[in-house]
Nucleic acid binder design. Structure first.
Lengths: 198, 198
DNA sequence: CACGCGATGACAGGCACTGACATCACGTAC
DNA sequence: GTACGTGATGTCAGTGCCTGTCATCGCGTG
């Protein structure tokens, strides 16, 4: 138990590379093996050949180790910037979110496994929600920079995130395994129908 | 410090009434006086004339003392049930959320103060977000019980929550202090415009 | 009057997280 | 090539959140 399972030989190299990645890997393994609650930060660190203190130098808290990898937000805001300026706000948001979908379709099983973990732990749901909310705010800010005025910018971003959430859930549960993009488009079409009816 | 500031005389009554309310009150005071982080659960309990252990019998965690009071969800689901069955999904959600607004308009300063606290603490934002998400799920379930099929029910609920969030934020910052209902209607109108344009 | 109930207290303990200081390979300057 | 600074890590002590468990005791009930 005293460091016998360290992957890298510390006699030659002061620090094994990719400490952050090793911590994420170890965390995923342990959460899968014995569950989130039953896993200690100390255990994660030890499996990665590090100490608890070092874990907290890489991640702000225990939950963050599950969310640090996805730089979804930066990528999407960049995507939005590349969309033609004259695109309507909601259409721009929709196009941006489609880019996110491409990240999902390739790793369906991995995403499903991750979501199962999150669904079983309210504290993880909270973290997921604040990540999505932050993404929504970032999209709104990006829209504002394109000249969209304020009620519309936030509204488009938030409505887009609403569709995204529903589409994501349906994509997860879809037995036919249709592409995420398909669910997204269904969602935006459904929203259009709903608002037209009201 | 050994119980000298207890509000009720324990010699006559075994337990002072409304322990939960006293805890909420004490928490609000202390959070206002010295901030959320600088306030200890033990301090809250002591100001309420109770022990830390009893605090956790009334609230699942430290944050919950700020959210336990509002039974917003139950009220709103009940409101939705009273709306005519033939109302369009989004219109029904809009009408339901207007009922929530009436709770706000009377206590503008109180709500503002509370939101300032939440805005300053990510952990409180997380809790707020999961409450809103739960409310959204409850609205979707209520819509389903009225016979709305599944993509539409969640979509209407989530879109409604999106508008609610934007309206709430604008209501908070509104220098003219217009009614919450006004901001809500502006929001739904704005959403309609956005979806029509796309 | 005995008994069970329910809200509370007392106590011990685990785990998440933080601050402060020490260590030590590596790169760089001189 | 020696001295020095840097950066990732280790060590240690400590605080606060939260839980399990058992004891207490006024109150209502039979």
């Amino acid at each position: 138990m005293t460091g016998t399972d360290i992957t890298y030989d510390l006699r030659m190299v002061r620090w094994a590379p990719n400490a952050r990645g090793r911590l994420e890997q170890a965390a995923l393994e342990l959460f899968g093996e014995r569950g989130y609650d039953a896993t200690t930060v100390k255990e994660i660190a030890e499996r990665a050949g590090l100490t608890e203190r070092t874990f907290f130098r890489h991640f702000a808290d225990k939950r963050e180790v599950l969310f640090g990898g996805t730089t979804l937000q930066d990528g999407l805001v960049g995507t939005l910037a590349e969309i033609p300026e004259d695109t309507a706000p909601l259409a721009a948001v929709a196009a941006t979110l489609e880019a996110a979908g491409e990240l999902f379709d390739g790793r369906r099983d991995l995403v499903r496994q991750r979501q199962a973990l999150i669904a079983a732990h309210p504290e993880l749901q909270e973290r997921e929600l604040i990540k999505l909310a932050t993404l929504g705010s970032a999209l709104a800010a990006a829209l504002r920079e394109r000249g969209i005025a304020e009620p519309a910018a936030s509204l488009a971003a938030e409505a887009g995130m609403a569709v995204f959430k529903v589409a994501f859930e349906r994509w997860l549960e879809d037995a036919e395994e249709q592409a995420f993009t398909q669910h997204l488009r269904d969602g935006f079409a459904g929203l259009k129908t709903l608002t037209a009816g009201a």
